[in-house]
């Protein structure tokens, strides 16, 4: 193999064909609220950890929908389970239980 001094740029494109549907369905069985998010961002706006670390329930749900579960888990690593997001969620999502469920299914 030859080294030309340059190589492929990584693609940022999400391939939805590769998203793990089975795991997501088992998460939805455990916490059906995961399906209810309408991406308003109230959770991230009020997140205690989010002001300092990349933490967001909204983004975590989106990452799971896009099949990027490692990203989702990372986005919740700094959560302190304070419950502020549960208070502000207009769809009444049980975010604390959702966060724990995500760790249970996707966590290492």
């Amino acid at each position: 193999m030859i080294d030309f001094g340059f190589s492929f740029s990584p693609s940022s494109r999400i391939n939805l064909d590769k998203a793990d549907k089975e795991k997501f369905l088992s998460l939805a069985a455990l916490e059906p609220d995961v399906l209810k998010c309408m991406a308003c961002g109230s959770c991230s706006a009020s997140c205690t950890a989010g002001a300092f670390e990349d933490t967001s329930v909204r983004k975590a749900i989106l990452s799971l929908q896009n099949g990027l579960s490692d990203d989702a888990v990372k986005l919740l690593n700094h959560c302190m389970l304070c419950g502020k997001c549960t208070m502000v969620c207009p769809r009444g999502i049980n975010t604390r239980h959702l966060i724990l469920s995500i760790q249970k299914i996707y966590g290492k």
Partner: peptide
Amino acid sequence: EDTLSSRPVKVT
């Protein structure tokens, strides 16, 4: 584009 994650997506 999934504009909420600011990334292009493709799906079959």
